[in-house]
Design a binder for these strands. Structure first.
Lengths: 195, 195
DNA sequence: CTGCAATTTCTGTGAATAAAGAAATAAAAA
DNA sequence: TTTTTATTTCTTTATTCACAGAAATTGCAG
């Protein structure tokens, strides 16, 4: 496929962004290309268009499929596999958030819980244990919150975002529930956070 | 400093997580150590504790300072520089989000805007242009939303998270404003997003 | 069942990144 | 001012990662 200068720049930038967020540059570029194309593409065309090796595309596609970002599609009258991604950007965002949550946040919460249940936890003193606990509580909060957000359809999600921080006005002085607020018990000096 | 098994595991895991999100492993480990320690530490002690070169610590600290995560502190009766981080986990989360937003989201929005203002934009057809635009709109929404969230203090933020998706009930059928919802005009086939 | 086309897996190479050590600089005490 | 200690910067080495090409496998068609 022949790429316009605009498409080329878009793909290049997206590859760069991916790299900064721990995603392989080529993987990100391929996804950007499929998003822009809007229609499923065969692997060799992807390779040609981006100027990377066919095998590289194969592995990158496998990665994207593992992330549920790309699906195998068959096209009438063509033996080759075609690969496509959703053209709904909110769909894609949801998928990425969901996957990162499952692969990274949840396992981290599990590790923290494990550390907190260890019998030798207090060797370092209660303050350090409390900090590990605070981190766990925070990640749990974010996890539960994103879980709920992921269930919303695109239009509702967009509205919630638009409402933004104005939500706080609905909360002010109006307790959400009786539990302790996350990050409530702060420990240790804050000298390092000074101006 | 002597590390307990718990602390060691915490730091190792955090380094691993950092790596997955595009942060240098040592940089993440140093930050984890400072968070756990709760008190500012001199560079050589960090190097000893983590078993990395003194120069490596120097460079990593510089990086953490650039991220506004670590501050230089002076300790009475000690010539050496000490480095500390906030022990408020929500503080840290806010800082990380703010920095990533400024370094990566905002510049990306700028690039997309630039692409969209290019005279040769329509070379690829209106559908591709529309997809780039949708991405820009989404990032703008997220940016504006996070901007507002970052202003909230820890307690309010925790409450907003607890409220979670229940916010939607407040919205249902009750338009937030008159503008078009983000991601509204979907284009191209969705064949790739099948079951 | 044979042969071609498509695709994946494996392996070696090159590039980018990270880290160590050496050298240079800066700062403070004697 | 000299000496010692702390810190950074620069250079070299090592490790990791990405990628290409070759080899192997799969699957369809004749």
């Amino acid at each position: 496929m022949q790429l316009s200068e605009t498409s080329r720049r878009f793909i290049l930038h997206w590859g760069e962004m991916g790299a900064r967020w721990g995603v392989n540059r080529t993987v990100a570029q391929i996804h950007a290309l499929l998003y822009l194309a809007g229609t499923p593409l065969p692997a060799d065309e992807i390779a040609d268009t981006l100027g990377v090796a066919r095998s590289n595309v194969s592995n990158s596609i496998r990665e994207l499929q593992a992330w549920n970002l790309v699906k195998l599609v068959h096209v009438q009258g063509d033996r080759r596999d075609h690969f496509g991604t959703s053209t709904d950007i909110w769909d894609l965002a949801r998928t990425i958030v969901r996957e990162r949550k499952e692969r990274e946040i949840e396992p981290t919460i599990a590790v923290l819980k494990d550390l907190l249940s260890s019998p030798e936890l207090m060797v370092d003193g209660v303050e350090r244990a409390a900090r590990i606990r605070e981190m766990q509580v925070m990640l749990e909060s974010l996890s539960a919150w994103s879980e709920e957000m992921l269930r919303l359809d695109t239009d509702t999600l967009a509205k919630v975002l638009k409402l933004g921080a104005r939500v706080q006005k609905l909360i002010r002085g109006q307790p959400v529930d009786g539990g302790a607020t996350a990050g409530g018990e702060r420990v240790a000096d804050r000298s390092a956070a000074g101006p």
